[in-house]
Design a protein around this nucleic acid. Structure first.
Lengths: 115, 115
DNA sequence: GCGTTATACATAAGAATATTATGTATTATT
DNA sequence: AATAATACATAATATTCTTATGTATAACGC
């Protein structure tokens, strides 16, 4: 899994972190690969997150104290589950709210064209 | 007008070009400052495009043959009206379609959380 | 008439964020 | 047995903005 299928190559910029946090808020506990698959599923294969962007983002959120990680062995393969910290829960409220408002604004710009 | 009011500081990344093209498709003929005001109006002051991002974007689109420019003097002040070229019209179809699908995908991710 | 805000363009240094390429290794499928 | 899928990782490079700064005219309030 190296590439994005589509357009979002540039469009995704800036939205990766909010996407990850939105999913983690809902699903409580997810690992990196699972996040890529969930996004792919929800968006009907329109968006495939790249690993080169996702993993550094998860590491950054962990370093910032937004996420904690829990390593598990599945057979001989490691899996890293991420969970929102207490700090994370309060910190992301604004992030997700802003993300939501931003998407609403984009909808307005697109719909405005249809009047 | 130096700064963005809000969140979209990072979120706007990648969407500036589609926004500009969406507006130009609708309004036929716009100048830079007008675009900043129109976006501000449509989004109820949520998004203020920065000049440092907008002007280079317009210059790039012009260099790429997507836009043509027409200089006008308003009093002693110059104003540069941008219009989509023929090439521009066909080229932006996909850009705007992709932009629209991307925003739909973001809506799905956000709504998915509400189920 | 003077200061402030709005209009209107521009560019450059630096920051942030992602792409692309590459690497390692296990497990499942054909 | 080979290929695809799962699962992590990092580094060089590219792209795209932010922030800061610059110039100048026009309008508005007082």
């Amino acid at each position: 899994m190296y590439y994005c299928l589509m357009y979002s190559k540039e469009l995704i910029k800036g939205t990766l972190q909010p996407i990850v946090l939105t999913l983690l808020k809902e699903n409580k506990r997810m690992y990196g690969y699972e996040i890529t698959q969930k996004v792919k599923e929800i968006t009907h294969n329109k968006i495939e997150l790249t690993e080169g962007a996702l993993y550094p983002t998860l590491h950054k959120l962990e370093a910032d104290g937004i996420l904690t990680v829990e390593k598990t062995l599945i057979g001989k393969r490691i899996r890293k589950y991420y969970t929102l910290t207490q700090k994370g829960h309060s910190a992301i409220e604004q992030t997700i709210q802003d993300f939501s408002e931003f998407i609403q604004s984009m909808n307005l710009i697109l719909k405005h064209q249809l009047r």
